[in-house]
Amino acid sequence: MEGDNVYLPHVMKIEKVIRETQNIKTFHFNFKDESQKSKFSFKSGQFAEYSIFGEGEATFCVSSSPTRMDYLEFSVMKAGKVTAAIHELQEGDEIGFRGPYGNWFPLELLEGKNLVFVGGGIGLAPLRSLIWNVLDNRDTYEDVTILYGARSPADLSFKYDLEAWEKDDAVNMYTTVDNGDEDWTGRVGLIPPVLEEIGPSPENTVAITCGPPIMIKFTLMSLEKLGFTNDQILTTLEMKMKCGIGKCGRCNIGNIYVCKDGPVFTNAQIQNFLSNEF
């Protein structure tokens, strides 16, 4: 879109639909107007407002890596009106897209560090953007450990990524499920105890975590037990958003606006939020 109207969406074409789980889908998408593509850039951790015309907008991160710009990706759990409409999307359909918004994972602070990624459920979406970003510049970082968990084998998203990371000698990959089934031969256990069992050293390490609130709560406790300080823990927060640019007034936690000041925060920043409403 020409001009500087921040609310005008780009029209994007859905190129591929991947069913991740019973209620999560991933979409590959691209600019309908190719001339816009070269002007677009984003960083891992940023989000956008996606829309189904006639249904409305919803907020999701860009889940692909900025190192892989052939197409963009976003992943959606079916939960309400707009997400239900998104789940109806077929290859070739068009959506609205405006962004990227918000801050990003501070790559320069991660350089030369061991990285521990801890993701739960669809919480792997923002992490995988960063993971692929890191793996595409593998020499810049030290050890890479990924722990991913979901409720059951059927709830594991991004299985193609898990497989790739499993095969990658430069990645310590751990997958776990809360409850297995008859075909599951892998690890069974909640993320926090599994994390403690793996026991990554906090020395020269940053942990990056995203997942459901209850998982985050106990993961933070486990990281603390392992000796991680709040400065060594990054997470990305989720709040109800509409504008994405700090004006519509709903995503604040105290004076901090998750859309504009976040969504990526260190745990130290979160602990220092003046008004911890939640």
Binding site: G54, K242, C248, R250
Partner: peptide
């Protein structure tokens, strides 16, 4: 007070 909502009206066409 300046809080707002953004929503779509009419149909998809």
């Amino acid at each position: 007070c300046h809080c707002f909502d953004i929503c779509d009206e009419n149909n998809k066409k």
